[in-house]
Amino acid sequence: MQTTLMIYDGTAAPDSDVPRTGGVPLAPEGFTWPMCDDCCGGPLQFFAHLPVEYGVLSVFVCQNDPGACEMWDATSGANRVFVFPSEGLVPMAPPAEGMTLLPAVSGVTTRVVTPEPDDGDEGVPPDAYDLARSGWAREPGERFGKQREVLGSLGGSPSYLEDDRLPACPSCSGATEFAAHLEEGIDARSAMNLGGQLGYVFVCRPCSKGAFLTD
């Protein structure tokens, strides 16, 4: 039961084409900074730049008035996920107004973890992401705060998410595929505000769009 964890890897340049949270988004020429379609109408905050085998995932979430816009809801318009091509991306300048950038950038490295299933509750299958995240805290050795290094995972299946919460593509209304988990971050400056919850990223490859929600 292998899981590809995203692990904190120090700081990174804000416009680097590496896995990271924070910094500035890299997007195709002419791309317009996404705005909140819920209640505030302001610019979304850039959360994560995640290169994957089929392109780059770019995640934006509204932070202009936390709690007012339903940034946790995949259908609220208060978040956006884009699938950009791997080539030809340029740094985007953020709008002058609004909460657009995180205070700090976190570099991300990936580690494939194969944890041993624990006993768990009788009759309940173990959750792969939960096991891998817990396993990282123990291997290759105990140290205080090590589990906070886990910034999420790529691929696999959405941890403990009920089928009725799986989002449809915002463009074609078709099914989306699970792409990533996101954890808030290693410290206050680099943290993405997820309301203390786990973030889920889904994508529709044909539409180059995706969806985001929290549990």
Results as ranks from 00 to 15, higher is better:
1 M>P: 09
4 T>C: 09
5 L>W: 04
6 M>W: 11
8 Y>D: 03
10 G>P: 02
13 A>D: 10
14 P>E: 01
16 S>H: 00
17 D>Q: 11
17 D>H: 11
20 R>V: 00
20 R>Q: 03
21 T>L: 02
22 G>T: 01
23 G>P: 00
23 G>E: 00
23 G>W: 00
24 V>K: 00
25 P>E: 05
28 P>K: 06
29 E>Q: 14
32 T>Y: 07
33 W>F: 08
35 M>H: 12
42 G>R: 15
42 G>F: 12
43 P>V: 00
44 L>I: 14
44 L>V: 15
47 F>C: 12
47 F>D: 10
51 P>H: 08
53 E>C: 02
53 E>G: 10
54 Y>R: 12
54 Y>P: 05
54 Y>V: 10
56 V>I: 11
57 L>E: 09
57 L>A: 09
58 S>N: 05
59 V>M: 07
59 V>H: 04
63 Q>D: 15
64 N>T: 03
69 C>S: 05
71 M>S: 15
71 M>K: 07
71 M>A: 15
72 W>Y: 15
73 D>H: 09
74 A>E: 08
75 T>C: 10
75 T>M: 13
78 A>E: 10
80 R>F: 04
80 R>A: 11
80 R>E: 13
81 V>Y: 01
81 V>F: 05
82 F>W: 09
82 F>P: 00
85 P>N: 11
87 E>T: 14
87 E>D: 15
87 E>F: 09
87 E>A: 15
90 V>E: 11
90 V>K: 12
94 P>V: 08
95 P>N: 12
97 E>V: 12
99 M>P: 02
100 T>H: 01
102 L>I: 04
104 A>W: 00
107 G>P: 01
107 G>T: 03
107 G>E: 01
109 T>E: 12
109 T>K: 15
111 R>S: 08
112 V>P: 05
123 G>W: 15
124 V>T: 14
124 V>L: 11
125 P>Q: 12
126 P>R: 14
126 P>Q: 12
127 D>F: 02
133 R>N: 11
134 S>A: 14
134 S>Y: 10
140 P>W: 07
140 P>H: 08
141 G>C: 04
141 G>M: 09
145 G>D: 09
145 G>L: 10
146 K>V: 14
147 Q>W: 06
148 R>M: 14
151 L>G: 02
152 G>F: 11
153 S>G: 08
156 G>Q: 03
158 P>Q: 13
160 Y>M: 13
161 L>M: 12
162 E>A: 15
162 E>M: 09
164 D>H: 13
165 R>H: 12
167 P>S: 03
167 P>D: 01
169 C>F: 13
170 P>S: 01
170 P>W: 05
170 P>I: 05
170 P>A: 04
171 S>R: 10
172 C>Y: 12
174 G>Y: 08
175 A>V: 06
176 T>Q: 03
177 E>W: 04
178 F>C: 06
178 F>G: 03
183 E>A: 05
184 E>R: 08
186 I>N: 03
187 D>F: 05
188 A>E: 13
190 S>M: 00
190 S>Y: 00
190 S>G: 14
192 M>V: 13
193 N>Y: 06
201 V>T: 07
201 V>M: 08
203 V>M: 06
204 C>W: 09
204 C>P: 08
206 P>V: 06
207 C>Q: 02
207 C>Y: 04
210 G>D: 06
215 D>A: 14
215 D>L: 14
